[in-house]
């Protein structure tokens, strides 16, 4: 494995934006490129993330390509997942050694629909989805399970409020090899891993986030004495599970994205990594752990360990 580092990050998050995907993206991509001091032609691989169900329109990533300026044609892939998984695909691609810079971006405009309801379509289409359990209902089940298991008290959980799903876009530039040597304020990805759990709610232990814990172990981030940790999830109570699963020391400053703040679905995970990077780039931390999640009740999780560029 060779070192791959985050060179820059830019994002924009809104409760509701009058801009469309391309308009949101062209701004953050331009900023991320400028901050990395790389030009369009330096980028050897591009990976994007979006989800058609946010806007109720298929092929949302196709028109978003207009924000990149994909001419001459570019080497590019797309995940229908949170942007953190696009980062993962780009990190893998940069291991090959033939290209030294990658652009990762994610976008989503949840404000166009009722995401709490739309998320029902993520469920098993034969046994679960036809019952239309909304995101909040499943969150309620998880919170109840936590209380019943004595993981936390009802007071600690509070009430389950529908997340403020919002609009947003984020872009990140990754560098490796000679471009990493020339970079300043980069954060090296020391480990990155993601794991998925069973889909069936009844087959899972909802009172812990085993996939977060496993991903953290595989990424070398478990029980790590890092300066900061950034985790994200739509519901406030999920912070309790993530803190435990990441097994951080008392010294680590923990930031949770979600709960009461605007939660840009699809962008949130990449944003979490971006926030961790920003702490390192600004000199506020030498090491950081970042977390991303996907699926109902934290079904799938990604953990990334970052360190300041040596």
């Amino acid at each position: 494995m060779r070192d791959v580092a985050i060179a820059s990050f830019a994002q924009a998050t809104f409760e509701r934006s009058s801009k469309d995907e391309v308009e949101l993206l062209v701004d953050v991509i331009t900023r991320a490129r400028a901050e990395s001091r790389l030009s369009k032609s330096d980028i050897g691989f591009t990976c994007s993330a979006s989800c058609d169900y946010l806007g109720g329109r298929p092929f949302s990533f196709v028109s978003a390509l207009d924000a990149v300026g994909a001419w001459p044609p570019i080497s590019e892939s797309h995940v229908e997942m949170d942007g953190a998984w696009a980062l993962y695909e780009a990190w893998v691609r940069l291991q090959h050694g033939d290209v030294d810079a990658a652009l990762v971006y994610a976008f989503g405009r949840s404000s166009q629909g009722n995401l709490n309801q739309v998320l029902s379509t993520q469920l098993d289409p034969y046994f679960l989805a036809p019952l239309w359990p909304e995101g909040d209902s499943l969150a309620g089940l998880q919170a109840r399970a936590m209380i019943d298991a004595g993981v936390c008290s009802e007071d600690e959980i509070g009430s389950i409020a529908t997340p403020r799903y919002g609009d947003g876009a984020a872009a990140m530039v990754l560098v490796a090899g000679p471009l990493l040597e020339r970079a300043s304020n980069a954060a090296v990805i020391r480990g990155i891993d993601h794991r998925i759990e069973a889909h069936s709610i009844g087959a899972r232990d909802l009172t812990r986030s085993s996939s977060t814990q496993l991903a953290a172990e595989k990424a070398g981030a478990c029980r790590r004495d890092v300066d900061v940790a950034v985790a994200c999830a739509p519901y406030a109570y999920q912070e309790i599970l993530l803190r435990r699963a990441l097994s951080l020391t008392d010294r680590t400053r923990f930031t949770f994205l979600g709960g009461n703040s605007v939660y840009p679905y699809i962008v949130a995970g990449l944003s979490s990594v971006g926030e961790a990077f920003a702490k390192i780039a600004s000199g506020k931390a030498l090491s950081a752990v970042a977390h991303a999640t996907s699926g109902p009740c934290l079904q799938q999780n990604l953990v990334c360990l970052l360190e300041v560029q040596p």
Binding site: S18, K19, D20, E21, V22, E23, Y53, G55, G56, R57, R109, Q112, G113, N114, Q117, V118, T121, P125, Y126, A129, P130
Partner: peptide
Amino acid sequence: APVRLPFVVTPGEA
């Protein structure tokens, strides 16, 4: 299992 989901789409500024 019919799926009916309402969306209010906005065209963007341009």
